[in-house]
Amino acid sequence: MTDLPATEPTPVDRPHYRAPGLFTRAVFNRLVAALTRAGVSVLGSRVLEVRGRTSGQPRRTPVNLLALDGREYLVSPRGHTQWVRNARAAGGELDLLLGRRRAHYRATELADEEKVPVLRAYLRRWKAEVGVFFGGVGPDSSDEELAAIAHRHPAFVLERIPA
């Protein structure tokens, strides 16, 4: 076996992440999080709380909870975000908050080939809000088009853990 020189990962190999803009960070996410903390779900919004992988402190961010065929899912439209990395590091243990209600979950990451129906349903529900992050792929795109972008968008199936 020959030692090959280390190379930079290709764009396909690099984890995809699209940082939120100033308006999203300073206004939109804060507004949705405030409404959700007050107990008002905006189209299925929740506040996700997960232990930070470095600090160990709880980290919160607004997310869209997708209900599909009797199961619940989280999808990261912006790619491999901080909440995704924290959820992985926490072994999938996370909480979803709506007002004073807290639900504890175990999140299991889906393989890319399992994501197509979940991404389609997610885009059907929230394309107006998050469609820009999916590179022109939408709910009416073919299975092949959705499968081609699946690696960019982590998705988790949730299992509720009784309190």
Rank of each mutant, 00 (worst) to 15 (best):
R88V: 12
Y73K: 03
E93R: 15
G52L: 01
S76Q: 08
R59M: 04
Q82Y: 01
E93Q: 15
H104L: 01
R88F: 02
V63H: 00
R88G: 07
T54I: 14
R60M: 14
H80S: 04
E93P: 01
T108H: 11
R101N: 14
A67I: 11
E49H: 10
H104I: 00
Y73D: 09
H104M: 06
N86S: 08
L68T: 07
S76A: 15
G91H: 13
R78L: 10
Q82V: 13
W83D: 04
S76D: 02
D69K: 13
Y105S: 06
N64A: 15
G99F: 01
P77R: 04
A90V: 06
R78W: 02
T61N: 10
V63P: 00
Q57Y: 03
R106E: 14
R60V: 06
A103K: 09
Q57M: 15
L94G: 04
S55Y: 02
E72L: 13
S76L: 01
G70K: 12
L96W: 03
Y73T: 14
A67H: 15
P62I: 05
S76N: 05
L96S: 06
V75P: 02
R53K: 15
P77D: 04
G56S: 11
Q57N: 13
R106D: 12
G92K: 07
A89E: 03
R85I: 00
L66I: 05
R85D: 06
E93N: 13
L65I: 01
P62A: 12
P62M: 07
T108M: 11
N64V: 00
V63E: 01
Q82H: 09
E72D: 12
G99P: 12
